[in-house]
Simulated assay, not measured.
Amino acid sequence: MKEKINAFLSSGLLEKYLIGETNFGETTLVETNIAKYPEVQNAYNTLQYNLEVVAKSNAVEAPKHVLNNILDELDDAPVISLKKSKKYKSWYKYSIAASIATLIFAGTSYLFYTQNQKLAQENQIVVEEIFDLRDDIESNNKKLDDVMYQFQQLNNPETYKYIMQGNSRAKDLKTVAYINPIEKTSLIDVVSLPQLPEEQCYQIWADLQGKMVSLGILSESDRQLRAIPYTENALALNITIEPKGGNTTASLENTVAAINLQ
Protein backbone atom coordinates (compact mmCIF):
# COMPACT_ATOMS: atom_id res chain seq x y z
CA MET A 1 0.00 0.00 0.00
CA LYS A 2 2.80 2.40 0.90
CA GLU A 3 4.48 1.74 -2.45
CA LYS A 4 1.21 2.50 -4.22
CA ILE A 5 0.89 5.83 -2.37
CA ASN A 6 4.53 6.76 -3.07
CA ALA A 7 4.06 5.93 -6.75
CA PHE A 8 1.01 8.17 -6.89
CA LEU A 9 2.79 11.06 -5.13
CA SER A 10 5.71 10.76 -7.55
CA SER A 11 3.45 10.75 -10.64
CA GLY A 12 2.94 14.54 -10.62
CA LEU A 13 -0.85 14.20 -10.79
CA LEU A 14 -1.31 16.22 -7.58
CA GLU A 15 0.57 19.17 -9.08
CA LYS A 16 -1.42 18.92 -12.35
CA TYR A 17 -4.69 18.73 -10.39
CA LEU A 18 -3.78 21.79 -8.33
CA ILE A 19 -3.21 23.97 -11.41
CA GLY A 20 -6.24 22.54 -13.28
CA GLU A 21 -4.46 20.50 -15.99
CA THR A 22 -5.94 17.04 -15.27
CA ASN A 23 -8.55 15.35 -17.46
CA PHE A 24 -11.75 13.81 -16.10
CA GLY A 25 -10.18 10.41 -15.33
CA GLU A 26 -7.11 11.94 -13.67
CA THR A 27 -9.29 14.29 -11.61
CA THR A 28 -11.39 11.38 -10.36
CA LEU A 29 -8.24 9.41 -9.46
CA VAL A 30 -6.69 12.33 -7.56
CA GLU A 31 -9.85 13.17 -5.60
CA THR A 32 -10.34 9.48 -4.70
CA ASN A 33 -6.79 9.23 -3.35
CA ILE A 34 -7.12 12.50 -1.40
CA ALA A 35 -10.27 11.23 0.28
CA LYS A 36 -8.87 7.73 0.88
CA TYR A 37 -5.28 8.27 2.06
CA PRO A 38 -4.23 10.78 4.77
CA GLU A 39 -0.69 10.87 3.29
CA VAL A 40 -2.09 12.12 -0.02
CA GLN A 41 -4.32 14.65 1.80
CA ASN A 42 -1.28 16.02 3.69
CA ALA A 43 0.77 16.26 0.48
CA TYR A 44 -2.11 18.08 -1.23
CA ASN A 45 -2.42 20.55 1.67
CA THR A 46 1.33 21.22 1.50
CA LEU A 47 1.13 21.87 -2.25
CA GLN A 48 -1.77 24.29 -1.71
CA TYR A 49 0.20 26.21 0.92
CA ASN A 50 3.28 26.44 -1.28
CA LEU A 51 1.22 27.64 -4.24
CA GLU A 52 -0.31 30.36 -2.05
CA VAL A 53 3.19 31.47 -1.01
CA VAL A 54 4.23 31.78 -4.66
CA ALA A 55 0.97 33.37 -5.83
CA LYS A 56 0.78 36.08 -3.16
CA SER A 57 4.30 37.23 -3.99
CA ASN A 58 3.59 37.56 -7.73
CA ALA A 59 0.40 39.60 -7.87
CA VAL A 60 -0.35 41.08 -11.24
CA GLU A 61 -2.75 43.86 -12.06
CA ALA A 62 -5.20 43.25 -14.85
CA PRO A 63 -4.69 45.26 -18.15
CA LYS A 64 -6.90 48.22 -19.07
CA HIS A 65 -10.19 47.40 -20.74
CA VAL A 66 -10.29 48.72 -24.28
CA LEU A 67 -14.02 48.25 -24.92
CA ASN A 68 -15.13 50.74 -22.24
CA ASN A 69 -13.12 53.52 -23.91
CA ILE A 70 -14.88 52.95 -27.25
CA LEU A 71 -18.35 52.77 -25.64
CA ASP A 72 -17.69 56.00 -23.73
CA GLU A 73 -16.80 57.75 -26.99
CA LEU A 74 -19.89 56.43 -28.82
CA ASP A 75 -22.15 57.57 -25.96
CA ASP A 76 -21.02 61.16 -26.65
CA ALA A 77 -22.17 61.07 -30.31
CA PRO A 78 -25.01 63.55 -31.00
CA VAL A 79 -28.43 62.26 -32.02
CA ILE A 80 -30.13 63.95 -34.99
CA SER A 81 -33.90 63.96 -35.11
CA LEU A 82 -35.57 64.81 -38.44
CA LYS A 83 -39.03 66.29 -38.41
CA LYS A 84 -41.45 65.65 -41.21
CA SER A 85 -41.95 68.65 -43.46
CA LYS A 86 -45.41 69.94 -43.91
CA LYS A 87 -46.82 69.97 -47.44
CA TYR A 88 -47.24 73.40 -48.90
CA LYS A 89 -49.58 74.18 -51.72
CA SER A 90 -47.40 76.89 -53.22
CA TRP A 91 -44.36 75.99 -55.36
CA TYR A 92 -42.04 78.42 -53.54
CA LYS A 93 -42.76 76.66 -50.28
CA TYR A 94 -41.48 73.45 -51.89
CA SER A 95 -38.36 75.35 -52.91
CA ILE A 96 -37.79 76.46 -49.33
CA ALA A 97 -38.32 72.90 -48.11
CA ALA A 98 -35.83 71.64 -50.71
CA SER A 99 -33.25 74.20 -49.57
CA ILE A 100 -33.73 73.21 -45.95
CA ALA A 101 -33.39 69.55 -46.89
CA THR A 102 -30.16 70.35 -48.75
CA LEU A 103 -28.78 72.14 -45.71
CA ILE A 104 -29.77 69.24 -43.48
CA PHE A 105 -28.15 66.77 -45.88
CA ALA A 106 -24.95 68.83 -45.95
CA GLY A 107 -24.90 69.07 -42.18
CA THR A 108 -25.52 65.35 -41.83
CA SER A 109 -22.78 64.56 -44.34
CA TYR A 110 -20.33 66.73 -42.43
CA LEU A 111 -21.36 65.07 -39.18
CA PHE A 112 -20.81 61.60 -40.67
CA TYR A 113 -17.43 62.69 -42.04
CA THR A 114 -16.44 63.98 -38.61
CA GLN A 115 -17.61 60.78 -36.95
CA ASN A 116 -15.68 58.68 -39.49
CA GLN A 117 -12.53 60.66 -38.77
CA LYS A 118 -13.08 60.19 -35.05
CA LEU A 119 -13.66 56.44 -35.48
CA ALA A 120 -10.50 56.18 -37.57
CA GLN A 121 -8.53 57.77 -34.73
CA GLU A 122 -10.20 55.45 -32.23
CA ASN A 123 -9.33 52.44 -34.41
CA GLN A 124 -5.70 53.52 -34.39
CA ILE A 125 -5.84 53.80 -30.60
CA VAL A 126 -7.35 50.30 -30.42
CA VAL A 127 -4.57 48.92 -32.63
CA GLU A 128 -1.93 50.51 -30.40
CA GLU A 129 -3.63 49.15 -27.28
CA ILE A 130 -3.75 45.67 -28.84
CA PHE A 131 0.03 45.81 -29.31
CA ASP A 132 0.35 46.96 -25.69
CA LEU A 133 -1.82 44.01 -24.62
CA ARG A 134 0.43 41.64 -26.55
CA ASP A 135 3.40 43.02 -24.66
CA ASP A 136 1.48 42.58 -21.41
CA ILE A 137 0.66 38.97 -22.34
CA GLU A 138 4.32 38.21 -23.05
CA SER A 139 5.29 39.84 -19.76
CA ASN A 140 2.61 37.91 -17.88
CA ASN A 141 3.71 34.64 -19.51
CA LYS A 142 7.26 35.28 -18.29
CA LYS A 143 5.95 35.97 -14.80
CA LEU A 144 3.93 32.77 -14.97
CA ASP A 145 7.07 30.83 -15.91
CA ASP A 146 8.84 32.39 -12.92
CA VAL A 147 5.94 31.43 -10.65
CA MET A 148 5.99 27.82 -11.88
CA TYR A 149 9.76 27.66 -11.36
CA GLN A 150 9.39 28.96 -7.80
CA PHE A 151 6.52 26.53 -7.19
CA GLN A 152 8.67 23.63 -8.36
CA GLN A 153 11.53 24.76 -6.13
CA LEU A 154 9.27 24.95 -3.07
CA ASN A 155 7.94 21.44 -3.72
CA ASN A 156 11.31 19.87 -4.45
CA PRO A 157 11.98 17.26 -1.72
CA GLU A 158 15.60 18.48 -1.56
CA THR A 159 14.50 22.02 -0.65
CA TYR A 160 14.80 22.89 3.06
CA LYS A 161 12.61 25.52 4.70
CA TYR A 162 14.07 27.84 7.38
CA ILE A 163 11.88 30.28 9.32
CA MET A 164 13.73 33.33 10.64
CA GLN A 165 12.00 35.32 13.39
CA GLY A 166 13.20 38.55 14.93
CA ASN A 167 14.64 38.97 18.40
CA SER A 168 13.65 41.64 20.95
CA ARG A 169 14.97 44.39 18.65
CA ALA A 170 12.58 43.40 15.84
CA LYS A 171 9.81 41.24 17.31
CA ASP A 172 7.58 41.43 14.22
CA LEU A 173 10.31 40.40 11.78
CA LYS A 174 9.61 37.16 9.94
CA THR A 175 11.21 35.75 6.80
CA VAL A 176 11.28 32.26 5.30
CA ALA A 177 14.31 30.92 3.42
CA TYR A 178 14.12 27.97 0.99
CA ILE A 179 17.51 26.39 0.26
CA ASN A 180 18.24 23.48 -2.09
CA PRO A 181 21.85 22.25 -1.68
CA ILE A 182 21.49 19.82 -4.61
CA GLU A 183 20.42 22.35 -7.24
CA LYS A 184 22.29 25.11 -5.37
CA THR A 185 19.35 27.53 -5.24
CA SER A 186 18.16 29.89 -2.52
CA LEU A 187 14.83 31.72 -2.26
CA ILE A 188 13.60 34.06 0.46
CA ASP A 189 10.06 35.16 1.30
CA VAL A 190 9.86 38.43 3.23
CA VAL A 191 6.74 38.01 5.38
CA SER A 192 7.07 41.09 7.61
CA LEU A 193 9.75 43.63 8.47
CA PRO A 194 9.37 46.26 11.22
CA GLN A 195 9.81 49.78 9.92
CA LEU A 196 13.26 51.34 10.33
CA PRO A 197 14.42 54.97 10.27
CA GLU A 198 15.04 56.22 6.74
CA GLU A 199 18.83 56.11 7.19
CA GLN A 200 18.83 52.36 8.04
CA CYS A 201 18.03 49.07 6.28
CA TYR A 202 17.92 45.30 6.84
CA GLN A 203 20.70 43.21 5.27
CA ILE A 204 20.94 39.40 5.11
CA TRP A 205 24.26 37.57 5.46
CA ALA A 206 25.56 34.01 5.10
CA ASP A 207 28.03 32.82 7.73
CA LEU A 208 30.78 31.06 5.78
CA GLN A 209 33.15 29.62 8.39
CA GLY A 210 33.26 32.87 10.33
CA LYS A 211 33.23 35.12 7.25
CA MET A 212 29.99 37.05 6.70
CA VAL A 213 28.96 37.18 3.01
CA SER A 214 26.25 39.67 2.00
CA LEU A 215 23.19 38.18 0.26
CA GLY A 216 21.43 41.50 -0.30
CA ILE A 217 19.14 44.07 1.30
CA LEU A 218 15.63 43.20 2.52
CA SER A 219 12.86 45.74 2.05
CA GLU A 220 9.25 45.83 3.27
CA SER A 221 8.27 47.42 -0.05
CA ASP A 222 9.70 44.39 -1.90
CA ARG A 223 7.67 41.66 -0.21
CA GLN A 224 7.85 38.80 -2.67
CA LEU A 225 9.44 35.40 -3.05
CA ARG A 226 12.76 36.10 -4.72
CA ALA A 227 16.10 34.45 -5.36
CA ILE A 228 19.17 35.26 -3.27
CA PRO A 229 22.74 34.11 -3.94
CA TYR A 230 23.41 30.50 -2.96
CA THR A 231 26.43 30.12 -0.64
CA GLU A 232 28.13 26.73 -0.56
CA ASN A 233 28.76 25.31 2.94
CA ALA A 234 27.09 28.25 4.72
CA LEU A 235 26.77 27.60 8.45
CA ALA A 236 24.04 30.14 9.24
CA LEU A 237 21.96 33.07 7.99
CA ASN A 238 21.93 36.41 9.81
CA ILE A 239 19.84 39.55 9.37
CA THR A 240 21.37 42.78 10.65
CA ILE A 241 20.49 46.46 10.74
CA GLU A 242 22.90 48.43 8.55
CA PRO A 243 23.22 52.00 7.19
CA LYS A 244 20.98 52.83 4.22
CA GLY A 245 22.28 51.19 1.04
CA GLY A 246 23.89 48.28 2.88
CA ASN A 247 27.30 47.60 4.35
CA THR A 248 30.41 45.72 3.22
CA THR A 249 30.97 44.32 6.72
CA ALA A 250 28.24 42.83 8.86
CA SER A 251 27.40 44.71 12.06
CA LEU A 252 26.88 41.60 14.16
CA GLU A 253 26.11 43.70 17.23
CA ASN A 254 22.99 44.82 15.31
CA THR A 255 21.77 41.28 14.53
CA VAL A 256 17.97 40.99 14.67
CA ALA A 257 17.51 37.41 13.41
CA ALA A 258 19.71 34.35 12.87
CA ILE A 259 19.30 30.66 12.10
CA ASN A 260 21.71 27.74 11.82
CA LEU A 261 21.83 25.80 8.55
CA GLN A 262 23.88 22.84 9.81
Rank of each mutant, 00 (worst) to 15 (best):
A101G: 07
V190H: 00
L237F: 12
S221Y: 13
V53R: 11
L154C: 03
E183I: 08
T27K: 08
T27V: 00
F112Y: 11
N58W: 07
V256R: 05
V40P: 01
T159A: 03
L119G: 00
G166L: 02
D72M: 01
T185I: 05
V53G: 04
K93S: 05
S95A: 08
A206V: 03
I239Y: 04
K211W: 03
G166W: 00
D145P: 01
A120D: 10
S192N: 10
V66H: 01
Q195K: 07
T32H: 09
L47W: 04
E183L: 09
F24N: 07
P63R: 05
I204N: 00
Y92W: 01
L18V: 08
E158N: 15
T114N: 06
N180G: 02
G107M: 14
K89S: 14
S99F: 08
G245S: 04
Y44N: 06
E129T: 10
Y202E: 01
S11K: 09
G166K: 04
E61P: 03
F105H: 13
G12A: 09
Y94I: 06
L235C: 07
S57H: 09
A101F: 03
L237A: 00
E3H: 14
V191M: 10
S219W: 04
D75E: 05
A236S: 06
D135K: 15
D146K: 15
D222N: 14
P197N: 08
N6Q: 15
L225Q: 03
M212V: 04
D135M: 15
F151C: 05
E158H: 10
E39Q: 08
Q152T: 09
